[in-house]
Design a protein around this nucleic acid. Sequence first.
DNA 1: GATTCGAAAG
DNA 2: CTTTCGAATC
Lengths: 256, 256
Amino acid sequence: MRVATFNVNSLRVRQQILLDWLEEAQPDVVCLQELKMKDEKFPAKAIAEAGYEHQVVWGQATYNGVAMISKTPIENSHTGFRVGPKDKQARLVQGTVNGVRILGCYAPNGTKLSTDKFAYKLTWYARLMRELSVGTTNADDVLVCGDMNIAHTANDVKNPNESAGRLHYHPLEHDTFNRLLAWGLVDAYRSRNPKSKDFTWWDYRMDAFNRDMGLRIDYMLATESLNKRITDVTQWKGPRALEKPSDHIPVTIDIA
Amino acid sequence: MRVATFNVNSLRVRQQILLDWLEEAQPDVVCLQELKMKDEKFPAKAIAEAGYEHQVVWGQATYNGVAMISKTPIENSHTGFRVGPKDKQARLVQGTVNGVRILGCYAPNGTKLSTDKFAYKLTWYARLMRELSVGTTNADDVLVCGDMNIAHTANDVKNPNESAGRLHYHPLEHDTFNRLLAWGLVDAYRSRNPKSKDFTWWDYRMDAFNRDMGLRIDYMLATESLNKRITDVTQWKGPRALEKPSDHIPVTIDIA
DNA sequence: GATTCGAAAG
DNA sequence: CTTTCGAATC
């Protein structure tokens, strides 16, 4: 089973790029982020015709919006957190496919340190971690994936010295990310590529893609048991080089 | 010599459609309307590379904006009216090519009867007519062309009964247009196609193009001496059927 | 730099 | 329906 995550940054604009990539990569399950559209605008038909007839969508106008699409049934699906008050922002979609519990995430950006939005980012992560223990333990096959908006280690940023203490690479974000991993998750890509510096996001500005000034902020975080079954992790750089690309690229894992 | 008029409704959006059409139709001189861009955004280089190195541009942000581009030199060029106060709206470009005085027009729409904008439309026409006598008489080769925003006769609208008294087909507009012709201009297309009902503009709304619910509002108006030299008048419907078309089509005349 | 929205215009 | 703009967000 191939599972993917892809922050499309507007599904309206990126629909063809997504469909072309689905055709190429043939994932079985895909978590999508930043749909930037209401549920009723979700191109359910076109995506079903591409083979993904099982769809869990939590859309939102303008900002956020997540979905899980699958060739095989999605069980026990939920949108948002099940514990605590309803999150107004559409950032989480949950479901179980072939016995793997998948949490598709669009973690808050945080915008700026010492703002409400940064506080919301940390709170959101705390709630995500709490959510993991609802119905599963770290002995189960659990996958947390998506745009996590945190660059975890020195090889997840271009220049660690320049990034130190800044948004996406701040100690408070690292603590948060480490706590998530400490629950019992393994960074599937990094565990197989300990030293590589391959990013998943490049700003649209400053010719960042051509200068490879990016971040690795899109992750596949698997429990140990699940990680052992993963036979491949691929970051698909191709779609970033197309016309009118998303600023993120898709990431896939293959599960034996 | 082939002379064209084309209201592109945003040269930014229509640049490729324009270049493709120039390649196809090979006009020598083209009057463009609704550039919707400032002078500094005009794609002077791309248009020069297409063979039109002589350019007179009067751009404007958001609304209006006109240009005359030519393969051969444009003499005695002017933007706007030479008589009276400067018009704030970029609606007129003048120049002489191969002895033919050309006035490229984007006449005001008028928006609604009994508004300032409708009054401005009539005033603008009065000023245009006054302009004709500056340096020329009706015995010279003069061409008034462009988006005139008036449907002159019953065959210039789909249903004359429905259009009667409405904007674009109002008696005040017909009087104005008739006065312009009375100065000594002939509608080159209509003089050769007395009964045809072929439009130059179709609203983007209501599937108007497919239902042929259009207007003929883009004209080539020539003095009698010039009209006699015209060997062909063509309204190019093709570009309206492309993806992301202008709502207007180009019109050309061939001058012997 | 790219996206969304709503307003204004045609 | 299409376009432009300015504000907001990332």
